[in-house]
């Protein structure tokens, strides 16, 4: 499975990328594979304050619904509206067009608590045993 080195990850299978004063977040390839065909994504309102580790979006497959947790705390400044019409992007391009939202972080230290690709992969391997 592909876990780009440039990204950070949460144990709850979200990825995060630092951009221009914002953190972009989405679901890892592992999560999208576990979900199988994503049929719907529910995104938060712009301006909503989210907390690290708290639910900020919902993703649904035919047989399941899961919360997506905010990788960092802050204000939602942008959401990927195209997912509402085309949720399959989460499956086909989870690190690109399948991004979920952009957060303007409010806590500086939180980024460092996220896992790098290698650590995330080893967490996955551990939980597989």
């Amino acid at each position: 499975m592909n876990f780009p080195k440039t990204l950070r990850y949460a144990k709850t299978h979200e990825w995060a990328r630092r951009g221009d004063g914002v953190v972009v977040a989405g679901l890892s390839e592992y999560a999208q594979k576990e979900l199988s065909d994503v049929v719907y994504v529910e995104l938060p309102a712009i301006g909503k304050e989210v907390k690290q580790g708290q639910p900020c979006a919902v993703v649904e497959s035919v047989k399941a619904a899961f919360d997506v947790y905010a990788p960092v705390s802050g204000k939602v400044v942008k959401v990927n509206k195209t997912l509402e019409a085309n949720p399959s992007l989460v499956n086909t391009d989870s690190y690109g067009e399948g991004w979920f939202l952009e957060i303007e972080p409010s806590q500086t230290g939180e980024w460092d608590s996220l896992l790098d690709a290698g650590t995330y992969e080893s967490v996955l391997q551990e939980s597989a045993h």
Binding site: Y40, E60, K63, A65
Partner: peptide, 13 residues
């Protein structure tokens, strides 16, 4: 359809 809204899948959600 849209069963993800329903109790047997979302349970407490």
């Amino acid at each position: 359809t849209l069963q993800a809204r329903e109790q047997h899948i979302r349970r407490e959600k």
